[in-house]
């Protein structure tokens, strides 16, 4: 597998930020009761992770180890503030909807996690791709959860009514606890699928130990 394909595969599935790294859970709980907020959050996180990883990878040979985390935070928050400024200027309605959550992208552990685990040891292009892959890996899980929460909590899909007047909204789906349940269910399903895939890969031709096991997080 080429390095680019491996990076994509890991971000989207085998080392998925939500399922495997269990990062970015705070925002998963917070924004997923509404699909359009989730979409903007996902785009913001993907942009900030990809650009942040790219920049940090470019700078990696210059950054002293002592201050590397400070520099990471600086660079990542730079991109988050850029997102905030752009939204305020060009998408005021979305900026108003999301309020403080845009600024809180910086507290998403995926950003620092990828900067530390990948960008610090890989080339800029590949780090950018890793950021995109992780952003999208985070994104598809979040959007799936938001789909269920918005559908059951409000009876809508991207704000469009799906169910008729007779539908009673599941209030719990709007509140944070439902995100806990759904994330846990998603984790459970993903782990079962992965265990099955591993068993299937091992059973017919047991060779190359470790090839089928999930790739450990890079140092």
């Amino acid at each position: 597998m080429s390095p680019a394909r491996k990076v994509l595969r890991e971000g989207l599935w085998s080392n998925n930020p939500i399922f495997v790294q269990v990062l970015g859970i705070c925002s998963t709980l917070a924004v997923t009761n509404n699909l359009s907020n989730t979409l903007v959050m996902v785009l913001g996180v993907t942009f900030a992770t990809a650009m942040g990883s790219w920049t940090l990878s470019l700078l990696k040979d210059l950054i002293p180890r002592k201050v590397r985390m400070i520099v990471q935070v600086l660079v990542l928050s730079f991109y988050v503030i850029i997102v905030d400024i752009l939204l305020k200027a060009y998408q005021p309605a979305i900026s108003k909807q999301l309020g403080p959550y845009v600024g809180l992208i910086i507290t998403n552990c995926i950003l620092m996690g990828r900067a530390e685990a990948f960008a610090a040891a890989n080339k800029p292009g590949l780090s950018f791709l890793d950021g995109v892959a992780n952003g999208l890996g985070y994104g598809w899980v979040l959007i799936s959860i938001a789909f269920v929460r918005e559908l059951l909590g409000f009876g809508t899909f991207f704000g469009l009514k799906v169910f008729g007047e007779g539908f009673t909204p599941w209030t719990i789906m709007v509140m944070a606890p439902s995100a806990f349940f759904l994330v846990a269910l998603a984790l459970w399903a993903a782990n079962i699928l992965k265990a099955k895939a591993e068993a299937a890969a091992k059973a017919p031709k047991p060779k190359a130990p470790g090839a089928a096991s999930p790739a450990p997080a890079k140092q």
């Binding site: 917070a30 924004v31 009761n33 509404n34 907020n37 108003k96 309020g99 403080p100 959550y101 709007v174």
Partner: peptide, 8 residues
């Protein structure tokens, strides 16, 4: 203007 919890 408001800064209430998005979605709630």
């Amino acid at each position: 203007e408001q800064q209430e919890t998005p979605g709630l």
